[in-house]
Amino acid sequence: MATAPAPDAAISVQRLTKRYGALVAVRDLSFSFCPGEIFALLGPNGAGKTTTVEILEGYRAADEGEVRVLGLDPIRQGRALKPRIGLMLQQGGVYPQIRPLEALRLFASFYADPHDPVALLDLVGLREAVHTTYRQLSGGQKQRLSLALALVGRPEVLFLDEPTAAMDPQARRATWDLILAQKRQGVTVLLTTHFMEEAERLADRVAIVDRGRLVALDTPDQLARQSAAREIRFSAAPGLDTAALADHLAAAAVLEPEPGRYVVEAEVSPTLLARLAAWLAERSVLLRDLHVERRSLEDVYLRLTGAKSEE
């Protein structure tokens, strides 16, 4: 049984399935989130991220299940919904011969209370490209214009499909600040990305999808903690007896991926570190380069999506 969508959710997806011929792009996907949240869909290419977003934007119809944006059906109630959302396609979407300010003024005319196009142009750092046609903008500049076009109507919900894919690191950081500023103004953001750092920096919650299926859903911190089995990395003389060390530490495993470099998989505690140091001292082995590592979202992601692709 599908549960009823939460009435106050900004976006709710209930048991969504979408097929393209024999290919199941999205399989029984459910999630919902509140107004003011930044929610990230994270997954490899072909995971169904764009399909899901485009169903929420009203571009495609669901085969099964139900989606709501601000309580509205994106297709049947599209007229009412469109003035309240802003979106950024993965690429393109702008007339090749148009100039940034013309595009912003055009889009501004579609909305009742738009942002000032000139101020927005400055905000995304395109003032110097004001006379350049879209075709001649760099990849990063095109994306910044697309972002500005998504923002011009003061949307309540913002759909960003890989918003920083073609940007250099500096522009990426500026864009992150811009997205966080939108959140502070109460805008709800659905973001797709395959940059782990982007999801970690921006998202309140992350859904990891793989082959159309939800494989994990939580805050970035919680996701990283769940698979916590923290680990210690250290360097020492090559050829240590890793099995004996694992026994001594009661560790899940001790590995030597390269000669002289070791990985201890265990719950890290002060005692554990002391025992490691003592074990090495007994053997007159000098401990170099000790790192206690918390697993990053990236590790979680690779484990969840990588393991599956080996099936």
């Binding site: 007229r79 090749p96 109507g153």
Partner: peptide
């Protein structure tokens, strides 16, 4: 070409 470049699609995502 507007269809090819996604212009028509993008305009479909606005209130126009």
């Amino acid at each position: 070409f507007e269809r090819h470049y996604g212009v028509l699609k993008r305009l479909g995502g606005t209130p126009l």
